[in-house]
């Protein structure tokens, strides 16, 4: 998986590309660290439009990011999911927990 981040208003948008899977666990700490210094109530948005594949470990990482955002008073949203990534999120019922935007 490749990722990039850029400021978006008071918050941050993280763009994910490729495959988000169990071998990407090492990136999780960095993705959490990006939340530091964001003002409370700002949006930590994940642009998943470039994501081709996600496995159960990748979904677990999204849940951890949701928990970490909540602890910091941030609003986490996921945008642009498609194809197999959308199916995996819906199958695991992650969309009951994390805000999914078009």
């Amino acid at each position: 998986m490749e990722f990039d981040s850029h400021p978006a208003g008071a918050g941050l948008t993280v763009t994910l590309k490729g495959r988000m899977e169990f071998t990407d666990h090492e990136h999780l700490r960095t993705l959490v660290r990006l939340m530091e210094n964001l003002p409370s109530a700002s949006v930590y948005a994940i642009d998943a439009g470039g994501l081709d594949f996600i496995d159960s470990a990748g979904l677990g990482m999204l849940l951890i990011l949701e928990e970490e955002a909540e602890q910091r008073g941030l609003k986490l949203v996921i945008r642009g999911i498609r194809g197999g990534v959308r199916r995996s999120i819906e199958l695991a019922r992650i969309d009951d927990i994390i805000t999914i935007e078009p």
């Binding site: 496995d55 159960s56 979904l59 677990g60 849940l63 199958l91 695991a92 019922r93 992650i94 927990i97």
Partner: peptide, 18 residues
């Protein structure tokens, strides 16, 4: 069965569903 909150076991839920 699927439980969105669980931290593990989701892989087998996928396999059994698909």
């Amino acid at each position: 069965a699927a439980d969105g909150n669980s931290r593990s076991g989701r892989g087998f839920v996928f396999m059994r569903a698909l």
